[in-house]
Write a protein that binds this DNA or RNA. Sequence first.
DNA 1: GCGGTTTAGTTGAACATTCAACCATCGGTT
DNA 2: AACCGATGGTTGAATGTTCAACTAAACCGC
Lengths: 153, 153
Amino acid sequence: MAVMTRWLDPDEQRTWRAYLAVSRVLMDTLDRELQREAGMPHAYYEILVQLSEAPGRQLRMSQLAQAAGSSRSRLSHAVARLEAAGWVRREDCPTDRRGQIAQLTDEGFATLEAAAPGHVEGVRRHLFDALSPAQVDQLRRISETLADHLTRS
Amino acid sequence: MAVMTRWLDPDEQRTWRAYLAVSRVLMDTLDRELQREAGMPHAYYEILVQLSEAPGRQLRMSQLAQAAGSSRSRLSHAVARLEAAGWVRREDCPTDRRGQIAQLTDEGFATLEAAAPGHVEGVRRHLFDALSPAQVDQLRRISETLADHLTRS
DNA sequence: GCGGTTTAGTTGAACATTCAACCATCGGTT
DNA sequence: AACCGATGGTTGAATGTTCAACTAAACCGC
């Protein structure tokens, strides 16, 4: 017999739609701000952030992909662009001849430093300014719960 | 003098990163599932859903863009694809000669009906199954608060 | 050290999104 | 009625992302 779909009840429906709409608007807004002020999409900013925090400001491509939440392919294309912009340099890995190391250049670091204040200000304005401390805490717990759930399954 | 950036404190930092990572993974997952099972990206699914709920299963392009959280340009391109797939039909608006009306076809409706159960199941599995009823409620309030804040500013 | 299986990373084509430029029409003003 | 700013929508080019196919090197068991 047919398996019945467990549809969303009205509360879940409302929650899902609100979440969907908001995450879209929030990301679009931050993306547009970053593009305008720093000339790069948010995904590229993420890559630079991850590199800047890594020891020696460098990471293996795979680890960088993992850290930035990107697919390998996407990262390959992205790093090609970032390299063309002079913000990242590719180097061969000494311990694994298959490997490539992405190295943040000084120029890349400077660009990131210049972009960060405006971006953080945007995150604060669009997200944290609207939420109570309790809600921030709730959002953190929810996100961490989901992260755990998504990686397990 | 220089304006000091209001950086994120450790709690905010942690919240932001967790939220960012999760919303990315969640969307990527649902997008991939929908692409695999229904042959369309999530953005296109959204368009079909909005049309299916509109009176007469039709909407003016602008209203559809608004409802689906899409830019006009994006919608134009998307509807062109959906039309090529036979899921949507474009018609002239009788009351405004500039206007276009997007009409969901029977085929489009059938496709949507076929795709919906799997997608809803995915939303339930990846999102609601992981959260307590209280957390669902919190997420709804947070999302609605943010929606309000984002549209005001 | 050989053969098979992973893992690392890139590539090109197809597809999706953005941005700015554009055309047509509407609606109010004079 | 002629004008003119605002609105509705499309287009093409540039940019980003995905998917599948691919090369090369590492790892593993024998």
